[in-house]
Design a protein around this nucleic acid. Structure first.
Lengths: 334, 334
DNA sequence: TCAATTTATGAAACCGCTTTCTCAGCCGGG
DNA sequence: CCCGGCTGAGAAAGCGGTTTCATAAATTGA
């Protein structure tokens, strides 16, 4: 009887079955072509020893771990959770697992965190909206295979998946404009956020089309508290409608305004961005630009998978958003 | 010039520095005690070759991967997200990464998914509220080191971390009782859920203390839709207050009741469970039992870490909940 | 000054699996 | 009947590190 405590190795199975380790390996990897009684003997021996191949050793020999990493700035954000969830499920179908890393919104730690995490797996999906471009460029090579989220930039020879924030927010603004709003306020995202920059570009596009509109830009952030904190400022801004960086900020704002005694949308309209699962359950339900996060997660895995298999990877992809008109936006207060 | 494409190995660094691989290994692991110029030569050579030790090879030699797994029934649930987030951050501080696996609420797939995932890392945290006890028992041994969440059961010689759902829901019921409610309805969780069972026990405890109370038990589920779907049933039940399996169900119910024209808490009180981040931002803000998910996540890592280091692991832990009284519960309608 | 230690470094085994290469043994054909 | 071509299975060389053990050099003490 072999030592009970430790796991059985391929050599032990081989010995017990009276064959070589090579044969055991072949049986377990469906590369075995010999007599079927030999295969049966191997399987029996393996079962008796409760043998499980060491994934680690296998990975080393094969040169691949069957795991990929996903680095996000904040795992607490439902948007990233949806991406993660979809990516994890899709990858699991191909036998891959995903390793998560949360940079806790601190761009300075991201390079180290990313490269450390990347070393343990075959590829990485990087969502680093605030990392400086030059740092990202320097990193890109050592991280490859790599897929970037929301960093559409021809400077990197890296497939990227991005949300069309620019036109999405412009369409939200158009919607407000049609409702009669002329004074808007934008609650911006975290400093240096690339995706915030895209939204601001969208707002500028919108302004160019409508000379009669004024948009106030505020610095908020990405969390509920950021929206909550700015409720007073928004009220005093004179704007009749607010566009938030994302749904979290919008939800915070919605609550803050409520606490100030304002009614949405009668006193002021509020729109978010992302369409997180809760957006339809706020009071009033939140008008927002719906982002296909699950599709994004699945697409991220597809890209990685192509690269890992040596297939030519699809190019950059820009995901459109869908306007989700709900009750938090309404006609201009009379 | 060595082949550019592939990564440098320890042997190449050794050759370039004119030392043996053993020395390079020692330098990189701070076990080096020799002349400092030798160490410097090694570091220079490594830098020139952009050498990064293969985590895989290191893991194989060391017998540990510095990764742990986390298996959840549904990654889309904010409660699990918070646990994951906390666990991931805590583990990262010790250089560990976490591997996620989502069983998509299908208990049948869990054993396979768990053991496959477990093989790739050093330990696993299992949250499988619906897996049959005998299956779990059979699994436990091959999964060890293992920490169970919400499966406090002396049958397993496995550390477990659990939420005190039983007394938590009883206290919520007490709260409603004090407000004058005598007819309650409970929107139960998924079938065979252990944590649902605990909640039901808590309700029974409560009933025993108060002969004047009637509690209707409904089968709901764990998601927003489940609460939403039952709004009509709840209204027709004649109950003046509803206790939901969790906040998601409560939020769904809140919305469903609103659509039916009922006002919470004037017409009916609603309480949730978990205190997910959104619970304080619903309308009205949700009364709930606050669960320390982040602490739970951190504690899970601590347990694993102790076991991995061979220290005696702390025993089972039962996390108390904190009553979070908000505006969704109010006095009995007059 | 020389033996006894201590110290810095390298050779080699090992972690557990995959895979190439090699070689018996068996087949049929001439 | 003998030989070349197949075939099934094993030996061994990796994968890229770590670590034990041995050894040559340096240090110490008498």
């Amino acid at each position: 009887m072999p030592r009970r405590s430790s796991k059985a190795t391929i050599a032990e199975v081989a010995q017990r079955a009276g064959v070589s380790p090579a044969t055991v390996s072949r049986v377990f990897n469906a590369r075995f072509v010999g007599r079927s009684d030999v295969a049966e003997r191997v399987r029996t021996a393996a079962a008796e020893l409760a043998y499980t191949p060491s994934h680690l050793a296998r990975s080393l020999a094969l040169g691949q771990t069957e795991a990929v990493a996903f680095l996000v700035p904040d795992l607490a954000n439902p948007a990233f959770q949806t991406i993660l969830s979809a990516m994890s499920k899709t990858a699991a179908r191909d036998g891959y697992r995903v390793l998560v890393a949360d940079s806790a919104e601190s761009p300075d730690d991201e390079p180290l965190l990313a490269s450390q995490t990347r070393r343990r797996c075959d590829a990485i999906v990087l969502c680093a909206p605030r990392m400086a471009k030059e740092k990202l460029l320097a990193l890109a090579d050592q991280l490859r295979p790599l897929v970037l989220i929301n960093r559409p930039d021809p400077g990197f020879a890296v497939p990227s998946l991005s949300i069309d924030y620019r036109s999405g927010i412009a369409r939200l603004a158009e919607h407000l404009h049609q409702l009669g709003h002329r004074r808007l306020v934008y609650l911006g995202g975290p400093p240096n956020s690339v995706s915030d920059h895209h939204r601001r570009q969208g707002l500028t596009d919108f302004e160019r089309r409508h000379g009669d509109v004024v948009i106030d830009r505020l610095a908020a952030g990405a969390a509920i508290e950021d929206g909550l904190a700015l409720a007073g400022t928004v009220r005093n801004s004179g704007a009749t409608a607010a566009l938030a960086f994302n749904d979290l900020v919008a939800i915070g704002l919605l609550n803050g305004l409520g606490r100030l005694g304002l009614t949405v949308p009668d006193d002021i309209s509020v729109a978010g961005f992302d369409d997180i699962p809760f957006a339809s359950f706020t009071t009033p339900p939140l008008t927002t630009a719906s982002v296909p996060h699950a599709e994004l997660g699945a697409a991220a895995w597809r890209r990685l998978c192509q690269t890992l298999r040596g297939q030519p990877a699809d190019g950059d992809e820009l995901f459109p958003t869908r306007l989700e008109l709900r009750a938090s936006t309404g006609p201009l207060p009379s």
